[in-house]
Design a binder for these strands. Structure first.
Length: 301
DNA sequence: CACCAGGCGATTT
DNA sequence: AAATCGCATGGT
C-alpha cells in the first residue's frame, strides 16, 4: 500500500461552491494562468524559490490539493495551503454579503444562481497589475491572447505528462524587455511602456505587495498605485479588490460593471454616477463582492 | 463598415 | 474641475 503524503486537505467553508469557483476559472476564455480539466484545476506557480504544479479538486466536505510537481515538505505544504486559501478567499465569511443580497429585490436571484462563488484572487501583485494593463480598453478575448503571448515568451514553462503549464513572468524578466518586442507582439506603445515601467518599479523596490499592505488604508494604497504611469483608478481598484482584497474597492468606470448595472435596470446610462453611488451604499464593505456577482451575471444576460 | 472593448494620460474648455 | 481626444487593434 502506498501512502501519499503529497496531498493537502482543506476544509470547505460555509457558503462555498467549488463548482461555481471552477466555472469562473473556466469561463469562455483561454487563460494561461491555470487549466481546468474535468473537476479539477491545475495551477503552476512559484512560492519562495520553488516552482510547483498543483492539482486542486473537491472531495466530500474538503478541498484536496495534490502537489504534482515540487517539494511536499511540511514547510512547502504550509505555503501551498495559504496560497489556496487566499486564492479562493476561503477565510471570508460571506454571511453578511448573502444577507444583503437576499434583501435586494433585483439581485436576490444571485443568492441561488451563483451560490458559493468566491472572489477568485490574483495573489501576485505584479501579475495582477500586468493583467490590468493588458486588459485596459480592449475586449477580454484579445486581452487573454496578449497575456498568453507575454507569458509564453517571458514566463516559466512547466511540462507534466505532455501538458504545458505556465508561471507568470518574474518582474526581473520584464524589466529588461524591449518595448519594440512587446509592440511586435501587438501591445500598443503605451501599454508596452506601462508594462516595462511597472516591472522596473518592482525591480527598483518602489512597489511590492508588502509595501502596499503596510500602508494604513485603502486611500493611501490607491494613491501609491496611481502614482505610476499606466495605473489609473480602474486598475488600482481592480488590484485592491483582487490582490489586496480591500472589501470596499470598486473598479469605477468598468465596462462590464456598467453593462451589468444597466442590464438590471439599476442605472439607465453609464454616466448616472448618482444612482451608482446609491446602489453601492446597499453593499457597504461588500462592494467588491457585489461587483464580482455582477460580472458573473454577464454570462447569463 | 461602424462601434465597442473589464482605460489612461494629455489636452482643451 | 470637467469634458474631450488619441491611442491601437481584435471582436461582433
Amino acid at each position: 500500500m502506498v501512502i501519499k503524503n503529497n496531498i493537502i486537505t482543506v476544509k470547505k467553508p460555509p457558503l462555498f461552491s467549488f463548482a461555481e469557483c471552477l466555472w469562473f476559472l473556466d469561463r469562455n476564455y483561454d487563460d494561461c494562468a491555470h487549466t481546468v480539466k474535468q473537476d479539477a484545476v491545475w495551477k503552476a506557480l512559484q512560492l519562495g524559490e520553488e516552482n510547483y504544479l498543483l492539482k486542486i479538486y473537491e472531495k466530500d466536505k474538503t478541498i484536496k490539493i495534490e502537489v504534482v510537481v515540487g517539494p511536499a515538505s511540511a514547510k512547502s505544504k504550509k505555503l501551498i495551503e495559504s496560497f489556496v486559501v487566499e486564492w479562493f478567499d476561503l477565510n471570508n465569511n460571506l454571511e453578511p454579503f448573502y444577507k444583503a443580497l437576499r434583501k435586494d429585490k433585483q439581485l436576490s436571484y444571485m443568492y441561488k444562481d451563483f451560490y458559493g462563488l468566491r472572489l477568485m484572487g490574483i495573489t501576485d501583485l505584479f501579475e495582477s497589475l500586468c493583467w490590468c494593463i493588458i486588459g485596459q480598453q480592449i475586449n477580454l478575448s484579445f486581452a487573454y491572447k496578449l497575456k498568453r503571448r507575454l507569458v509564453e515568451r517571458f514566463g516559466i514553462k512547466l511540462e507534466y505528462e505532455g501538458s504545458l503549464f505556465y508561471i507568470f513572468p518574474d518582474f526581473k524578466a520584464l524589466a529588461q524587455a524591449s518595448a519594440e518586442e512587446l509592440k511586435a507582439m501587438q501591445f500598443s506603445s503605451a501599454k508596452a511602456a506601462y508594462l516595462i515601467n511597472t516591472a522596473q518599479a518592482f525591480s527598483d523596490g518602489l512597489l511590492s505587495k508588502s509595501i502596499l499592505q503596510s500602508l494604513p488604508d485603502e486611500e493611501s494604497r490607491h494613491k501609491l498605485l496611481t502614482s505610476f504611469r499606466g495605473i489609473g483608478t480602474w486598475t488600482a481598484n481592480y488590484v485592491l479588490m483582487k490582490t489586496i482584497r480591500d472589501p470596499n474597492s470598486i473598479p469605477h468606470g468598468d465596462a462590464g460593471l456598467l453593462k451589468a448595472l444597466i442590464n438590471h435596470d439599476i442605472i439607465e446610462d453609464k454616466k448616472d454616477t448618482q444612482k451608482i453611488k446609491l446602489f453601492f451604499e446597499r453593499y457597504k464593505n461588500m462592494e467588491s463582492y457585489i461587483v464580482i456577482y455582477l460580472w458573473r451575471s454577464l454570462a447569463i444576460h
